[in-house]
């Protein structure tokens, strides 16, 4: 076991875990941040997506020993009040079915909007190609990202 001081959602968290433990399981089992989901354990489905310094990253493939001082943002820390434009758009359009993949979808989309505030449908599809939705709410995910872009624009101009 090794002690690591992680920067999770803006706060320092000390964990004592085996170095090869994927960040996913540190979040879920150790820190009880279970919004980040286990889907495949191999980087194929995107359910475990978090941000490392703002970059969408598969936490199931990220050993805790490699995280270092990078800022880890999970769905729980995406927005202090849970009112990120994506979180609002997702509720407004009733995007989720089972909801299991949606944290990963939202985290991936949040990074897209950060980089590209007004993405085309093709850019949305390109960014979210790695996020599997087994219920196939893809039409609403696409619409949800578009709606969030609008909401973010309104926020900026307000």
């Amino acid at each position: 076991m090794t002690k690591y001081v992680l920067n999770i959602n803006g706060a320092a968290q000390t964990v004592d875990v085996v170095p090869d433990t994927p960040l996913l399981w540190v979040l879920r089992d150790t820190l009880e941040l279970v919004g980040t989901k286990f889907g495949c354990g191999a980087g194929h489905c995107g359910a475990c997506t978090v941000h490392l310094n703002g970059v969408p990253t598969r936490s199931c493939m990220t050993p805790v020993s490699t995280v270092g001082r990078k800022q880890v943002t999970t769905i729980e820390g995406l927005d202090a009040r849970g009112t990120h434009p994506l979180q609002r758009a997702w509720q407004e359009l009733d995007v989720p079915q089972c909801g299991y993949c949606q944290a990963g979808q939202i985290m991936t989309a949040a990074a897209l909007l950060q980089e590209n505030p007004n993405p085309t449908d093709e850019e949305i599809e390109g960014a979210l190609a790695g996020n599997l939705c087994r219920c196939a709410t893809y039409l609403r995910i696409r619409a949800g990202v578009r709606r969030a872009a609008e909401l973010a624009k309104e926020e900026r101009s307000a």
Binding site: L33, V34, G82, Q91, P96, Q102, A103
Partner: peptide, 29 residues
């Protein structure tokens, strides 16, 4: 009427909801 899923607020903020999210005191894996 078009009514959003009642768990949507919890889904989009990552609250525990699913079987895999269950955590009990002293739980083993």
């Amino acid at each position: 009427k078009r009514i959003g899923g009642v768990d949507n607020p919890a889904v989009v903020t990552g609250k525990p909801l699913f079987g895999i999210d269950v955590k009990l005191p002293g739980m083993l894996y």
